[in-house]
């Protein structure tokens, strides 16, 4: 038992510093992929709602593919495939060999690309939930498209989609564990390395589960209060 405790401590044989770094990296990867997913998701939702026909189709196919293929495959494909793609592009066009994306970026990007497909659906639903009359009223009052988005769409959609985005965040957090297969030392991979080299898998996977529970609980609490704040004018 003392043995186990020193493995989890901050001493020379303790894994606490690496596990905590892993937590930070997990949060960083999840936040980056969430941001990538939001930007791309808004663009996809716009493409589905207002884009020209070919763009609508492209966005639709994107959603079907990225929501239908296992996240693990997307990560592996990007991790192994992206560098060779970049290199062959560079060769074709005669560029100098460009710097290659680090695993942090590849991991965030692959989780972000999947996240975007889900977020696009949420934004699309959010815009759909706004009464049509409001757009007509805005147009009647001479609002431009941008004004309409800023004054009518954004404040309402932000409130409507917040709980759903909270769900996507939780999925991102858990999907980030799959990036372990690229060797990025986030929480999952750190616990795997620790389990393998100390041969105490029960201990380290247990600790990792507890740490993920802390992360998911803290962030769902944050979203809960965020939701209360954004709805503060609704009450009573």
């Amino acid at each position: 038992m003392m043995d186990d405790l020193s493995l989890l401590g901050f001493g020379p044989d303790g894994w606490a510093p690496l596990l905590l770094k892993g937590c930070m990296l997990t949060l960083a990867v999840s936040a980056t992929s969430m941001a990538i997913g939001t930007v791309l998701g808004v663009l996809l939702a716009w493409a589905r709602l207002k884009g020209p026909r070919w763009l609508r189709r492209t966005a639709l196919v994107y959603g079907v593919v990225l929501r239908g293929v296992p996240e693990l495959l997307v990560i592996l494909l990007l991790y192994f495939g992206l560098p060779s793609l970049i290199l062959s592009l560079a060769e074709t066009f005669g560029w100098d060999a460009p710097g290659l994306p680090p695993p942090f970026l590849i991991g965030s990007l692959s989780v972000g690309l999947v996240s975007a497909a889900y977020q696009a659906e949420i934004f699309r639903g959010g815009v759909g939930a706004i009464a049509k009359g409001q757009f007509e009223a805005a147009r009647a009052m001479g609002f431009s498209d941008l004004q309409c988005f800023h004054r009518i769409v954004l404040p309402q959609v932000a409130r409507i989609v917040l709980p759903a985005l909270g769900n996507v965040w939780q999925f991102n957090l858990k999907d980030s564990a799959l990036i372990a297969v690229t060797g990025l030392s986030e929480l999952m991979r750190t616990s795997l390395v620790a389990a393998g080299s100390t041969r105490h898998p029960f201990l380290f996977f247990g600790v990792a589960m507890a740490l993920y529970l802390v992360l998911t609980t803290l962030s769902s609490t944050a979203f809960h209060y965020g939701g209360r704040y954004s709805n503060r004018w609704d009450r009573g």
Binding site: K174, M188, P201, F202, F205, G206, M209, T216, T217
Partner: peptide
């Protein structure tokens, strides 16, 4: 609240110990 991959590793490697 925890990733499925971690649950799988826990059941496969953790429980084996």
């Amino acid at each position: 609240g925890t990733p499925l991959i971690l649950q799988i590793f826990m059941i496969y490697y953790g429980f084996a110990m």
